[in-house]
Write a protein that binds this DNA or RNA. Structure first.
Lengths: 191, 191, 191, 191
DNA sequence: AATGAATGAGTCTTCATTCAT
DNA sequence: CATGAATGAAGACTCATTCAT
């Protein structure tokens, strides 16, 4: 009998390699060949485990979204009973620390986002994530501001996070990650 | 006998067709063929006038940036002697009205931005634009807030504009253009 | 501890699965994967028992030819001492009933035949079968017609059988199986 | 301006090369590469002129069917006012001489036919041809035999032609082309 | 000036086969 | 005996670019 249970291992390997490739070359220049070379596997394996390149891309985005979510939950669980202002700060850290762990994650994310505008499957995933961020923010903002500006303040913070992340994707940009984080926290503080 | 002065006409035609194609199909799916079909010209013409597809893309981004700039200047000139708060509102309108004139302009812009992360020539153009937006904002913010928070408030507004634009690129997203504009103006007002 | 005597069982399983697959998808679209899925076995098994896909195909054709032969002999043995005209009718029935038992057997046969034109091993098998049919026909025709037209009448009948079978392979064709059989019998009767 | 009007020339070239390739290697082993190598053109050209390999195959079959038709009409026109028995002989000659002009045309034809069983577009073409042959035969047979056996005799002749052609596709088969022709004519004579 | 015919490198995908277990 | 993980060569197709006209 051959080695059993390789599927989850290979899938994880391929998703990692995809992230690596998109980071290095961009989604546009990421090919089955670049992914497989990084993974140290043969080109056929992608069709074998994911059915095709496109599905691998989608699985990778889904993995990214789940990671973001997981990281946030972990941070929140570490500090139970935290206040709402502090909770927002954790949320902000969670969003920007992701960038630090994975270099150029913002560029990767942006690649996927741009593609999503013309790819329903990806768009669906991005929307799920966008809504999750918004409701997470709103949940805490409710306790910090007047009811009539809850939505507007929530949108403001969500937009700031996305905007700063996007701006961070350009090397030599005017904002770095720590700045991004502190700009957002400044806003939270001013509420 | 060659027609004289065709160059600017053809170049404009091709840039328009490029914008149209990126809007319709995304940058990824925009090919020399799609551009030329829209322009009603033959594929050879791109190399002839721009040297290649890549340079046409860059010229298109440059055109977009100049348009944005031009539109802002026009708006400002129409209302000379405007106050700084009002000047920021004009700047916001200018940014979001661009979206209205060209449907899916945000998706187009996002396509170019994502590409820029892996393309130095485009990155340079994006940086120019990013810095111009920032200094434009800062110029007015200076007169509205304490000196020690000028930078942070400027970054906040710049990030909001970009973030809302990006979020607008996803169809069925949680924000529409008018909302985006009013969210930014709300922020300006709160300064 | 290996199970003994699996070889004939597995070989039969795989030949059956091959016939099934060629029927369903055509020889062109029959892959090791389709065969093994139908057989409920793993892809490695084909190389193990037959040495490769090609040899399995050949074994399958050989099985088909033997079946045809077997069926004819069975029919003849059931009615010993039958006259030559009746014997030809049995031969005709034998050929066309094969089609009835296995739907699309004609398409399967045709697939193999077409392949045979460019595959010596298959061609050899087809020739054996072609000659067997011809001599079977001739054996009886001898007793029914003048000596100088034995060959020509034999060829005529053989060609008719093949031609009708081939035409039957196209769905919505102009002849069905019962017609085919009666057309041949009409010819035998006219001798 | 480039050379204009290349389309019909290239299309004919590619159809010829396809016939050549199917003759040499069989339909199964005919690839874009084999066709283009024979045609002396590059692989991209097939998509350019036919949209894809499959459509080239279909165009080739259609060309074959039209050729068969054209050849028959030419033969008939050369001998206007010919009797019905003689007309059938011309039809037989037309069918079998095709084999002579194009070597191994029978194998080519058989390849296409086998494929047709699993390809609706090809099946449609084959049916058109099958019906045309049948009605051509019937048109003359009507004048040679009793009304109640017109159909059966027509089917017989049509099946004979196809069957002999198919048998001719196997090298070293038991029938050659002249024999095939004379076997059919013998049948016509016996009516 | 402009065409569009043609190229051919590059992409994704398929699939018969191998081999450690 | 049998598995199924993995391979990698070969397939069809795409597309930016070139060039004769």
């Amino acid at each position: 009998m051959p080695k059993l249970g390789m599927e989850p291992i290979r899938k994880a390997q391929l998703i990692d390699a995809t992230l690596e490739s998109v980071e290095r070359y961009g989604l546009q220049n990421t090919t089955v060949a670049t992914i497989c070379k990084i993974a140290g596997l043969s080109p056929g394996i992608i069709s074998h485990y994911f059915g095709g390149k496109q599905q691998l891309i989608e699985a990778t985005v889904w993995y990214l979204i789940k990671s973001l979510q997981t990281e946030l939950l972990k941070k929140l669980n570490e500090q139970p009973g935290v206040g709402h202002k502090e909770r927002l700060n954790l949320l902000i850290d969670s969003n920007f620390s992701q960038i630090q762990t994975t270099t150029k994650a913002s560029a990767t994310w942006l690649s996927f986002w741009a593609q999503a505008c013309h790819d329903p499957a990806l768009a669906r995933l991005q929307l799920i994530n966008e809504r999750r961020l918004f409701s997470n923010i709103k949940y805490s903002i409710k306790h910090l501001v007047e009811e009539d500006v809850v939505d507007i303040k929530s949108h403001t913070l969500a937009a700031m996070i996305d905007g700063l992340w996007m701006r961070g994707s350009l090397e030599y940009g005017t904002v770095d990650l720590e700045q991004a984080s502190s700009i957002c926290k400044h806003f939270v503080n001013s509420l």
